[in-house]
Design a protein around this nucleic acid. Structure first.
Lengths: 131, 131
DNA sequence: GAGCTTACTCTACAAGTGTAGAGACAGTCA
DNA sequence: TGACTGTCTCTACACTTGTAGAGTAAGCTC
């Protein structure tokens, strides 16, 4: 299905996160949600949201005079897009070096390392067994 | 030292990669290097490079009538910035969930999984012993 | 010293992003 | 029915990014 790769801007991330938490919801809801965090005015939020509809990131449904927004991409898709961008730009599109870099440069607790190790083991089993 | 966090655009990545490969070097060198890949004209390249100097991504050194450019950030810094951006935006700034997501959603060969496992073991030893 | 080559400077423009004011419109309540 | 409130529409502007043409300046060659 060759899914489209999404690259959201910082502002779009702020908005879509609020949408995921509230959908379906009207623009004022989002504005209120973001008010505290980033203090955008209603116009700002509404403008961005409508642009995001144009891009296919959100979709709308009109109920009388109210416009309800929902996301049209999932959080996973957006997260994946974000990772792909980093991977493509900074690591020639290769995952392993990127993960190695992350392991290498960040301070992970022993606990976290353990968790990751477990995940890998799990994954390995599946790779071997499955298929 | 609270290093500045760099967020390069796609174009800036293209250029700085070429600079890393050739520095110190003049703008035409970079243009030639990128010609094949992305076909930018000299003006385009030069404009971007000068803007990057303004931002502190590159620096210059004038030798008579020639301007030599070098990077003022390392590849590691740029890579790290790219990862931080993804992490901040898409994973609330948390590394482990991001790594889990990567492990989970991508197809890694058994080999790659093995490599990662080894790295983690290594890291774990250091975490434990090293203090 | 006229022309060629090489590199540089200046200027510009379109698209995208962040930002928001002003005004219109509909529903509600006194 | 007039004021108020909530929501929407329109319009606009500054800044960034990608993109590049046109013109200038310096050095080299015959």
């Amino acid at each position: 299905m060759t899914r489209k790769q999404w690259e959201l801007t910082a502002g779009e991330w702020a908005i879509i996160q609020a949408v995921w938490d509230n959908e379906p919801c009207a623009a004022p809801t989002i504005q209120e949600a973001l008010e505290k965090k980033i203090g955008w005015s209603y116009s700002t939020v509404k403008t961005m949201m409508d642009r995001m509809v144009g891009k296919g990131l959100l979709r709308t449904q009109r109920i009388r005079n109210l416009i309800l927004y929902s996301s049209s991409i999932t959080k996973k898709e957006a997260q994946s897009g974000e990772i792909m961008r980093a991977m493509r730009r900074a690591f020639d599109g290769a995952l392993t070096p990127m993960m190695q870099f992350m392991l290498d440069s960040k301070s992970l607790t022993e606990d976290e390392l353990g968790q990751l190790e477990a995940m890998i083991k799990n994954k390995k089993d599946k790779t071997k067994g499955g298929k």
